[in-house]
């Protein structure tokens, strides 16, 4: 854990990288986003989601890995590809249901506007 013995000598930094709590490090180095200073920008939203999701697994990454849990690869909040897949599936599903309601095969073009929620 993070409780560290007071080193006695001020000015040296005792939370060695190997023992400091990862959550403590992350909230310091990610806080307020990665976007501020550099040329390469990541949406702040991505990072916020990342840190939120992160809180769920950082205590047990190794355990999760061993158990073959790879939800972060399919979690829409973490993977844009997964998000696209999920949206595509949902979209397809909704189109199918709409077609069913309109009494035509799912593949045929619709007469009405393609606006969602119409």
């Amino acid at each position: 854990m993070t409780t560290l013995d007071f080193p006695g000598t001020a000015g040296t930094y005792s939370p060695t990288p190997s023992t400091a709590n990862l959550a403590d490090i992350l909230e310091r180095i990610l806080d307020k986003g990665i976007v501020i200073a550099g040329d390469i920008k990541i949406e702040l939203l991505d990072i916020e989601l990342l840190t939120i999701r992160l809180r769920l697994f950082i205590s047990s990454v190794e355990t999760a890995k061993k158990a073959g849990i790879d939800w972060w690869e399919t979690d829409p909040a973490l993977s844009s590809r997964a998000a696209e897949n999920a949206l595509a599936r949902e979209n397809e599903d909704l189109r199918g249901r709409l077609a069913e309601l309109e009494g035509r095969p799912a593949g045929t073009p619709r007469r009405t506007r393609a606006k969602a929620g119409a």
């Binding site: 400091a20 490090i25 992350l26 990610l30 390469i40 990072i47 950082i58 990454v61 972060w72 993977s79």
Partner: peptide
Amino acid sequence: LRRRLSDPVELERCARTHHA
């Protein structure tokens, strides 16, 4: 970066390196 930071192992490695 987005891909690497979404991988918890890689994220931890990056974070600890930065901190070190």
